[in-house]
Design a binder for these strands. Structure first.
Lengths: 344, 344
DNA sequence: TCAAAAGTGTTATCCTTACACCCATGT
DNA sequence: ACATGGGTGTAAGGATAACACTTTTGA
């Protein structure tokens, strides 16, 4: 038998909901001891005490990976998550810095789950956190975030130009242009993961510095300069292990699917107003949409149908309530919501 | 520590190339003993002797999952694969029927690799096989394959109607309509995996019957009727374990990416004619394209540029050679090839 | 009366599709 | 000459984006 015994399989869940206008993730804290799998506690030895919920994969009990996930999510949080989807399997060496201290190699299978925000209740419940606290440069709803031009792009350019090998330097510049939309390239709001990875490689997120320090006993790499230190302050809240990378993977996946799969409806109650639908799409895509055209797109594409009811809750004229037309799933090729963006 | 020790991690590669007009996969056979990882031989105990190449993940040696894959692919096949991408992680119980005989639970991380067809040369090289021998219903280039209407849809309808619970029956009918494009729904050429999964569940592929027989000692499930037996004859070549499912995952992913990412170019030499480009796209998408419009789409979108050279190989007027414009990667939002389909 | 939100209509523009047609080369 | 493949033009149709405008409610 090959030496595979020392890798451990863990399942992680990015559980997302949208309340009001903010996308939120269910996260657990150091104090939620029930979440720790015996001696495999992702919080010990790292600075950040906030993590994505995780659970074990038990080959003797769990018939499939997805059932394993649903089971421990229900046990731990008491939430019934609706839509689930496998995101990616993360297995880089030292993705868990405790490996440096003799901990096992942990391979983590990340899942995305969409639901509605409810109070978690299980053994080790957790709390909801604003997604854009972790990835602040991804929220463009109130104009382009100023940190991008003021902090991130200058720091990233400095990092790219510091590379001595011309071919690698060119590759860095190309990635910078592609992800952050520098020199005549537009910002692509799906490239969430690529942007996070660039920031991590350039040492501009706290996790990069944390991992550098963990490695410092064994491998010596230069610390951040003043610019990078400023950037780390500006790049938002950090999380345990590579969990911000998982969040970025999840957000990128959601944004990519939004336009060609009706995933938003998993985040909404059965009946909703068009404004609510628009708010959910806006909060996930991180941009403001053109109201009239948005409404026309979803109604012309027959993605929704009126329930006949009216909603007189908010101010202004009462809005018609709509429901998702389940039958579009078998009718249309790529039934997504359409994202008619608006200049901010 | 939770009971994770008994799960084994393996990496599988779907290595694809397009020669002439047929997409091919690199597969290994029973006789390629060097590919077996010690006592973990996926061929023993199953009927099919043809399998996707696989290799171990060695946590002590491999820095990342992707590097592990590239390393054993190079060792075993001698091929230098270019583009690689993680597909999916497969962990269902009994996905390897040897689990029933006390074998370990094997979690397999599937990768897609694109390259050019070369003679494999490593320790346990393998051979190239026509992808559509395994998924014959996916190739619509010479009209819609007759087995769909003659065999598959009748058998699938019979399977759906045989379900006693109305809600599950409805769900089966909905899936059938969505994947095989029955009742006024169009065939979506990206739903490759969903179609294979439906055929497997309905017992219309050889693997379903193989797995049923492997389980028969422990769990009794009814065998195929005459219609299903005919279908199994018609649904093409089978492969070891769940490797046809991995192929379906890979083909679905390729087809999905084709239109919004320039993945085809990974399968082509640096310079190519537009006809060659069109043939590669056609062979992967499984449909014929409208020549003039295809050419206009790729040239108008500035996806390619002329090299100035001419190709006088084939019959007819010599064709201009083109190269992929690498700079589109940072310019455009979703630079794919465009698929102007044509009625057959 | 005003703010806030729901809705409707119209037009310019772009992209795709479809069809028709001509060009260059080898046999 | 003709088969084979390369290559151009153009017009119809549909979808989107941008704009202006009306309607209905609560405070």
């Amino acid at each position: 038998m090959a030496d595979n015994g020392s890798a451990v399989i863990v399942l992680n869940a990015v559980i997302a909901a949208v309340t009001d206008k903010t996308p939120r993730l269910l996260m657990v804290r150091h104090t939620d001891h029930a979440l720790a799998v015996d001696n495999l506690n992702p919080f010990s030895g790292v600075d950040d005490d906030i993590a994505l919920p995780f659970g074990p994969f038990n080959p003797d009990r769990d018939r499939t990976l997805e059932l394993a996930l649903q089971q421990w999510v229900a046990e731990q949080t008491g939430l019934s998550i609706g839509y689930t989807e496998q995101l990616y399997t993360f297995g880089d060496r030292y993705r868990d810095p405790r490996e440096l201290a003799g901990g096992p190699r942990v391979v983590s299978i990340g899942y995305l789950a969409l639901g509605r925000e409810e109070a978690p209740s299980g053994d080790g419940h957790g709390d909801w956190f604003d997604l854009y606290d972790f990835l602040p440069w991804e929220d463009w709803r109130c104009n382009q975030p100023s940190i991008i031009d003021d902090v991130l792009i200058p720091s990233l350019e400095e990092w790219a130009d510091a590379e001595p090998y011309p071919s690698i330097r060119e590759e860095r510049r190309r990635r910078l242009a592609m992800t952050f939309g520098h020199d005549d390239a537009a910002w692509n709001f799906e490239h969430v993961l690529e942007r996070y990875e660039l920031l991590y490689e350039a040492g501009l997120v706290a996790e990069a510095e944390r991992d550098r320090l963990a490695r410092a006993k064994y491998i010596n790499t230069p610390g951040p300069n003043a610019g990078a230190r400023t950037a780390i302050e500006a790049t938002g809240r950090s999380a345990a292990l590579d969990h911000r990378r998982m969040m970025a993977t999840a957000l990128g996946r959601i944004r990519g699917k939004l336009t060609y799969r009706p995933v938003v409806f998993e985040l909404l109650p059965p009946a909703f107003t068009l404004l609510r639908l628009q708010q959910v799409v806006e909060s996930l895509s991180g941009i403001n949409l053109h109201k009239q055209n948005f409404r026309r797109l979803v109604t012309n594409n027959k993605l929704v149908e009126s329930t006949g009811a009216l909603d007189s809750e908010g101010p202004g004229r009462p809005a018609k309530m709509f429901r998702f037309r389940t039958s579009v799933l078998s009718e249309r090729q790529a039934p997504g919501v359409g994202v008619p963006s608006i200049a901010p």
